[in-house]
Computed example of a mutant assay.
Amino acid sequence: MFDPTIFDNLKTVIEGAVYDLDVTDELVTVVDRSDIIDLAKFTRAYALSFQLRHARKVTCTISLAMTLQHIANELLYEEISQAGCTMTVSFSFSATHVDGQAVEQMLKHIWGEQRTVIQTLTYTYPKHERYTHQVTIDFERMINESHVDDLLQMIPYIIRSLEHLQQYAK
């Protein structure tokens, strides 16, 4: 019988919450999903990407990652306090001008001043009329099943962020 890990349980919660927004509420559209098991490094990675159904300029990706050490801590009961996985929430969009400070202030207003907001801009050289702007909310801590309610409570923050970031996307 399959004994799910913390990673599997959190992945199921995230999938359920986002697919409810897609199918039941018709608020978002899931645009991509990735579930990777790397047997060479014995790691897990999961990502679910979606957009607001009525405004599809910005994509949100919720990512979970579990390393070999995380898995060992959980399954071998070595450092059970270090068992879990990491999670990030990223937003990406195309833009012609980027006001990184305004984006950071807006997201910190929604997510809280203590959150780490990482912004990455990429463009194709030598033409740089359009940028791909990726903004990541990094929680900088391990999560486990005790954070399920927190994950579900993040959904309104994600929706509000998607709505507000539309103004920067071109």
Rank of each mutant, 00 (worst) to 15 (best):
Y157L: 05
L68G: 11
P156S: 05
Q166G: 04
G100N: 15
N9G: 03
T67N: 05
R130T: 12
K170L: 12
Q134I: 01
T116S: 14
R56I: 05
I14D: 00
Y46E: 04
Q114P: 06
A17V: 02
E78I: 12
Q69D: 13
G16Y: 07
K170C: 10
V58T: 12
S81G: 04
C85Y: 08
Q166R: 11
I110T: 11
I143Y: 01
M154D: 06
Y77R: 12
R141L: 09
E78V: 07
R160A: 08
V98N: 09
M142Q: 04
T122E: 12
L27C: 01
Y157N: 00
A55N: 13
D8P: 05
L76T: 15
G112P: 02
E74A: 06
S161F: 04
I6E: 02
S63N: 15
D25F: 13
I143A: 03
T12D: 12
H147C: 10
I143R: 00
R53K: 12
T124H: 15
E145H: 11
T43P: 06
V30Y: 01
A83D: 02
T12N: 12
H147E: 07
S49I: 03
W111V: 05
R56N: 13
H128W: 09
R130H: 08
E104D: 09
I80R: 13
D32I: 01
S92D: 15
L121I: 15
C85M: 07
V148Y: 02
L76I: 14
D20F: 14
E15Q: 10
I110W: 13
A40E: 11
D99F: 15
D22N: 11
N73A: 10
E74H: 09
Q69S: 10
L151A: 06
S146T: 05
A65P: 00
Y19H: 09
D20V: 13
T120L: 14
L162R: 06
F93Q: 08
Q166Y: 04
Q167D: 05
I6P: 00
F139I: 01
E129D: 14
P126F: 10
S161V: 05
L39Y: 09
V13A: 05
H97Q: 15
D8N: 11
Q166W: 09
I143M: 10
R56V: 13
Q134H: 03
T116W: 14
Q101W: 04
R130A: 11
V13T: 08
L52A: 09
M106W: 04
E140N: 15
Q119D: 06
E104C: 07
V148M: 02
L162M: 07
L27I: 08
F2G: 07
D8S: 08
S161R: 04
Q166H: 08
S90Q: 13
Y125V: 13
C85A: 14
L68Q: 11
D149F: 00
Q101E: 14
P156H: 00
V135F: 08
A45H: 15
E79H: 12
T120H: 15
R56S: 14
D149I: 03
Y157E: 03
Y123M: 05
I155F: 07
L165K: 01
T124F: 12
K127W: 00
L39H: 10
T88A: 12
V28N: 01
A72P: 10
A102V: 06
